[in-house]
Design a protein around this nucleic acid. Structure first.
Lengths: 171, 171
DNA sequence: GCCACCATGTAACTGGTTACATGATTCG
DNA sequence: CGAATCATGTAACCAGTTACATGGTGGC
């Protein structure tokens, strides 16, 4: 079975051949709940090519080496699509640090929390803006955005509920 | 600067020397928003030892090689504690798959969503139970749990708001 | 024509996961 | 006393990040 990153690349390639650079740009757009670096894209493409799931096309402009999806690649994509997605993985450095935060002066801790609180509020505003702007988007493209909105709201509520001595200022 | 995983190990070692196995157990307990595998623990300990931040103690029972924190290690921990935590990293395979889900029969998609919905409801129930049980916990130990509760509630709300043709059954 | 930025790719390193190996306890 | 589980660790592999290199394009 291929991994999620490869699967995503194959998914994008169904719309036509693309070089690694462009695939990365497309992938970066469907962030923020999935990320791939450019290097990863090139590596995955190389192994996909080795396994015959994509095919390297003649080099185009600026050394661009487009890849196209093969019949075998389409089959692998469909197989991946039908498998149960794994559980999500959340990695939250802030919570780790908080675990040890008794050893930190309250004001320093509060300053840290403030930074993150503000960032989450900015993100929520951004997502809300996108949702308004893109209200005509196909259903399945909107759900990710909705996930983001729900997530940010939850985090913001969490911040606002922190004990008063460390809670960030919320206007 | 040391990484978060090393920092956590140093943090735990302040309470006394521990072998890698035990450190991993402690770390696993402060999940679910931070994870380390056992292998990682051993590797980090080895590099921490190389850098003089921990010291290997004489082997105890069952080949256990406890490590103790050094003065230099304590300093490194304090330095880490004072740095701004990075942004969180969320990796949600379900959302990636959803991006391509137009190519999946609606009922298969719904079945997938049901599995995840049920899992999140179970998690919320578990966290709520813990919160009730551990109501006397020190503040900073409770905030992680609260984060989990807020997160699960948000995800559950998201599920319940999905378009009717794919939304999981919610009693 | 130069400068900034865009498009393209490779290489090296670090962090995370899986698989393997093995002796000690515990419990029925 | 035998089986299951716990405690301990190593090695190999895979995935993610950072750093490096370089030619094209567009705008002033």
């Amino acid at each position: 079975m291929i991994n999620s990153t490869s699967a995503a690349l194959l998914g994008f390639l169904r719309d036509g051949p693309q070089p690694g650079y462009q695939l990365h740009k497309i992938a970066a757009d469907i962030a923020p709940f999935w990320t791939v670096t450019r290097s990863q894209v090139y590596r995955e493409l190389a192994t996909l090519a080795d396994r015959g799931l994509v095919k390297r096309e003649p080099t185009g402009k600026r050394d661009a080496a487009p890849f196209s999806i093969t019949a075998k690649g389409r089959a692998a994509f469909r197989a991946w699509l039908a498998t149960e997605p794994e559980a999500e993985n959340l990695r939250i450095p802030l919570l780790l640090k908080l675990t040890f935060a008794e050893d930190l002066p309250a004001e320093q801790l509060q300053a840290m929390l403030q930074v993150h609180y503000d960032r989450h509020r900015a993100l929520l505003a951004e997502y809300d803006g996108l949702a308004a702007e893109l209200s005509e988007l196909p259903v399945l493209q909107r759900v990710t955005l909705q996930y983001g909105i729900h997530y940010e709201r939850a985090v913001i509520a969490w911040f606002e509920e922190l004990p008063a001595d460390i809670a960030p200022a919320h206007s």
